[in-house]
């Protein structure tokens, strides 16, 4: 066991994913409470063309450049979704599905262009951003994740009070002089930022789990905003550590899915055993004598 824990790859990957999952859990909790859980999913998929385009334009497969393209397309996707839902009868559900798949389609079209074109070399790696390849994470990737996470958490801390009011009572927050549009935008920007830097670790498809599951776990164990955030962050980090360990110790188990499965297990456990969970509620119901 010690052998795994002290290996260089493990330390790099574990550090990267833990920091990412901690920040992702906290920021994701806000989206979940706002009922916008799946925006992260749409944004995650929509970053794909951004990555390919960044590679095409600048020609290097370096995480910083690619993350920039990802952020840009994440924002474009979000603005498109918002425009559609605000100005037509199309619901959020429909707009998410449309934008998610169309942007991903654009990414695939660009990818096929790059792959069939001799001007571009070394395209094999780009697919890693769809499924994630944590094992290939470099020290520079960890630096980027750390920087993005610190910035995100710093912004979160700076607007903590406003965001809290905005989530629980948007009407009051407007009368209290808080700019709701700005708050929503801030939340979104940090979500997109974290998704973009986290793609290499868990991939575009699974990253949404990192945003939702810790948040739901937090909500099941506590009703206090600050405690929910803390539990969300810590359960994310714990799952990241465990998942990375399983994947490093085991053979042929990808890190991203291992983290997601660990989180899902924690999630299921909480759903049953947490103070607000199913078991406690059934006991309470029985005591009332009102079992239907």
């Amino acid at each position: 066991m010690m052998e795994v824990l002290t290996s260089f790859t493990f330390i790099v990957v574990a550090a990267g994913t833990m920091i990412l999952a901690f920040a992702g859990g906290m920021v994701g909790a806000i989206s979940v409470m706002k009922g916008q859980s799946l925006i992260g999913d749409a944004v995650g998929h929509a970053t794909f063309p951004g990555i390919v385009l960044a590679f095409m334009l600048i020609g290097v497969k370096e995480t910083y450049t690619l993350a920039l393209g990802a952020v840009l397309f994440g924002i474009i996707a979000f603005l498109t979704i918002q425009m559609i839902t605000n100005h037509s009868k199309v619901t959020l559900d429909g707009a998410l599905a449309l934008v998610l798949s169309s942007f991903f389609g654009l990414g695939m079209a660009l990818m096929s262009f790059v792959q069939g074109n001799p001007d571009f070399e070394g395209t094999q790696g780009l697919n890693d951003y769809i499924f994630g390849q944590a094992a290939y994470m470099l020290r520079s990737d960890v630096y980027l994740i750390t920087a993005a996470s610190v910035i995100s958490l710093f912004i979160l801390a700076a607007f903590y009070i406003q965001i809290r009011i905005y989530i629980f009572d948007p009407v009051f927050s407007r009368t209290a002089g808080i700019n709701n549009t700005l708050m929503n935008f801030i939340i979104l920007i940090i979500t997109i930022l974290l998704i973009s830097v986290g793609l290499k670790a868990v991939g575009a498809i699974l990253i949404v789990n990192l945003l939702i599951a810790p948040a739901v776990i937090g909500q099941l164990w506590s009703s206090r905003f600050s405690t929910v955030l803390l539990i969300a962050g810590s359960s994310g980090a714990f799952a990241a550590f465990t998942g990375t360990y399983i994947s490093t110790a085991g053979e042929n188990i990808a890190t991203g899915p291992a983290i997601i499965l660990t989180l899902s297990f924690l999630m299921a456990l909480s759903l049953f055993c947490a103070p607000k969970g199913i078991i406690r509620r059934n006991i309470y119901k029985r005591r009332m004598g009102g079992v239907s």
Binding site: R281, Y284, K285, M288, G290, S292
Partner: peptide, 10 residues
């Protein structure tokens, strides 16, 4: 007739 939502009597 008795009706309850979750654990709250309605």
């Amino acid at each position: 007739l008795n009706v309850a939502y979750q654990d709250k009597p309605a």
